[in-house]
Amino acid sequence: MGRKTGFIISKIAELLATLLVVSLLTFVAFSVIPGDTAQVILGPDASQAQLDALRAELGLDKPLIVQYLNWLGGLFTFNLGKSAAFGVPVASLIAERLPVTIGMSIIALIFVIVISYPLSVLSARRPGRALDQVFSVAGHILFAIPPFVLSLLSIIAASALFSGFRAGQYFRPEDNFPGFIGCLLLPSFCIALPKIAMTFKYMRSSIIEQNASEYVKNAKGHGLTDFRILIKHVLPNSNVSAITVISIVLSDILAGSLIVEQVFNLPGMGRLLLSGIARRDFPLLSGMVFYIAFITVLLYFAADVLGSIADPRIRLK
């Protein structure tokens, strides 16, 4: 028991240490980049007195270490200050855009799992045969196409095929939830496609590897059917190793969504980030960069913990 609690505590300590480093790097990066938040807010015509006053108000005249500690405190209380460009709190800007990005990521992940798993099982049944070859080649092609190209192609294709489809349409989730999900489907699919190829490739070789293992041979010797061996033995074992891959896929999906949102004209984190960059909105950018890094670190952490729970060899050590 003591060992298990120790394991969890040490994992959480690792997580906190990583986040601290991430926050420090983010802060230092934005302190080094040239640009002045007060100047952005007041515009080029502001007088020196006005700038000094605003700097004092924002705390920008204090030593860097104090600024960092203030900012760090703000991260934990979701008080990131006001956006220089939009004049509203950064936290509320992020909260407003989050549903689109999170929604797209979840739908894309569902696409990845629902499509890549059956395909990899089919492919791994008879490696090297025609079906496997076709899937593998298709996978390579999909893997090589960048998501924004896929997005453009899919918009053209969807417009041609469905008369009701209108590119760039968006419904707010609180107004029309099915419509909101509907307008996320195609962009999610575009983000998911290369990841489907990646997960397929990994799962396929993992299943082939498990199929060659001694315990599968043994289960066959006991007269278990292939299907039973697949469901009860092979897939659970493949899943343990797939957890890491899926966490990487998920963080890739998040990154991918930033670009695809732009193509589909969806008001998500990606658009917010781009407009923040265009207007040198440092409070907004530093907050977003930190939270994106935070989600990524959290994903890997979750994968790590899940992996150790799923495998009794680690769990019961």
Binding site: Y215, K217, N218, G221, H222, G223, R313
Partner: peptide, 23 residues
């Protein structure tokens, strides 16, 4: 396949890896 286990049992060489580690 139905005969395996019921009529014919098999034991293999490697006891180390012949059991599903997750089960």
């Amino acid at each position: 396949r139905n005969m395996l286990g019921k009529d014919i049992g098999m034991i293999f060489q490697e006891p180390a890896s012949a059991l599903d580690p997750l089960m």
